[in-house]
Amino acid sequence: MQAVQQENPVEQIAHTNVSHCYQCGKCSAGCPMGEHMDVLPNQLIRLVQLGRMDKAMRAQSIWLCVSCQTCSTRCPKSVDCAGIMDALRELAARSGNPASEQMRTVVFQQAFLDNIRRYGRLNELELIAWFKTKAFAKDFSVPLLFKDAMLGPKMIQRGKFHLKGEKVRDRDVVQRIFAKCAS
């Protein structure tokens, strides 16, 4: 057990000690997404304690998590459950094998980072176009393609729509930061 814990990649990324969890379930009780989750937050921590990383990384719930930090805030043992969710997402995305039902969220987050890497700031219109194209290529969802199309004119009317996104001057440094942080 000791050896498993020392090499646990979740603890390395999240800087938290999963063995401190005594399974009180307070994280799951306060989770706003709990009722939709296949594996509850306290169950995920148990899987990590047991070294069952394969099962934890395949859980849909890690992508349903909205990162609201309620679990970490309320944990009586100061286990950073939200940080564990982050670590599991990172490891699952890196392994290229997250739960297929939640690929849309993975694709969105990847498209977001790709956008920042190129411009330094978010280009909302391009992010939406990229995300919809990439998600469509994966699940062929026509409703997703047209989702929020009606919002466009209303946003233009309210001056909330920017055809041209902002770019930072020093985009080279942004790209070097991304390169140095590549896992």
Partner: peptide
């Protein structure tokens, strides 16, 4: 001057080092 994106949820979900580096810049 020339601020960059903080990385938001995408960075802390996918790359913990980037989630510190983008705000750090």
């Amino acid at each position: 001057d020339d601020w960059i994106c903080c990385g938001a949820t995408a960075a802390h979900s996918l790359n913990h080092k980037l989630a510190v580096a983008l705000p750090a810049r």
